[in-house]
Simulated assay, not measured.
Amino acid sequence: MGYIGTFGTATTAPEHYCTSLGTPRWSGIHESDFTVDLEKDLRYFIEIEASRMGNNDRVQGCVGENQQFFHEQFLGGWPHKLWLECYQSGISEKPNQMPDFDEVWPPMPI
C-alpha cells in the first residue's frame, strides 16, 4: 500500500490517501464540519491504522516514526490520544507464532 498525507492542524484533519482504500471522508475536513458519522469513521481508521503502523515500525526498527498524525488540539484531542494508544498497542503486539513442527506432527488420530 502507498500512502500520501499531511499532518493535521489544530482545526483540520490530516489529509490522507491510500492506494488500496482511497481517501477517507474525513480527510482534510475542518473540525466544525465533523458529524457523528465522520467521527465514527475517524475512530475506526485510527484503531486500525495506528496499530498497523506501530507494528510495522517495530518490525522495521523505526519506532516513533509514525507516532504523530493528529494535532493535539484537533477535536478536543481525542484523535491524538487514541492514535498514541493504538500506536503503542501495535508496537507491543507479538507476531503470530507458528507452533513447533514437533507439536503438530504426527497428526492426532481422527
Rank of each mutant, 00 (worst) to 15 (best):
F45M: 13
D33F: 07
G5K: 02
T35D: 14
I91S: 04
G28Y: 01
G61E: 13
T23G: 02
K40P: 05
Q67L: 00
T9S: 15
E49F: 07
I48Y: 07
T6D: 14
F7H: 11
P107R: 00
P107H: 07
S89H: 04
P24Q: 02
I29G: 02
I29L: 13
T23W: 09
T6F: 11
F34A: 04
M53D: 08
S32F: 10
S51D: 03
F70T: 06
E49I: 09
G64H: 02
E103R: 05
G64L: 07
T9P: 00
G5R: 11
R43T: 13
F45W: 15
T12N: 14
D33M: 12
P107T: 09
K94T: 14
D33T: 12
D33W: 03
T19Q: 09
M1Y: 01
I29T: 15
S92T: 06
N96Y: 15
R43N: 11
P95H: 06
S89D: 09
E85A: 07
Q67M: 03
H16F: 14
G28W: 06
G61C: 10
G77L: 05
E72A: 10
V63D: 02
Q60I: 02
E39N: 15
M1P: 01
G5T: 05
Q97Y: 04
G90A: 07
F69Q: 07
I48M: 05
E31L: 03
V59K: 12
S89M: 04
I4S: 12
R58P: 01
F101N: 06
N96H: 05
C86H: 10
Q67T: 00
V63N: 11
P99G: 11
P79H: 06
C18D: 13
Q73F: 05
D41K: 00
L84R: 11
H80E: 08
S89C: 00
P109K: 08
F7V: 12
L84Q: 13
V104P: 07
G61H: 09
Q67K: 12
A50F: 08
V104R: 02
P95I: 01
F101M: 14
F34I: 11
E85K: 04
V104L: 14
Q97R: 09
F74A: 03
D41I: 03
C18N: 15
L75H: 01
H16Y: 14
I4Y: 13
T12F: 11
R25G: 13
L42G: 02
E93G: 03
F7E: 13
P95F: 04
G2N: 14
D100R: 14
N96T: 15
N66T: 07
K40V: 12
Q88T: 10
V36R: 13
Q97T: 13
L42M: 14
Q73N: 10
D57L: 02
L84A: 08
G22V: 13
R25L: 15
Q88N: 14
L42Q: 02
P106I: 08
N56D: 00
R58G: 03
F45N: 08
P14T: 07
G90M: 08
Y17H: 15
E65W: 04
G22F: 07
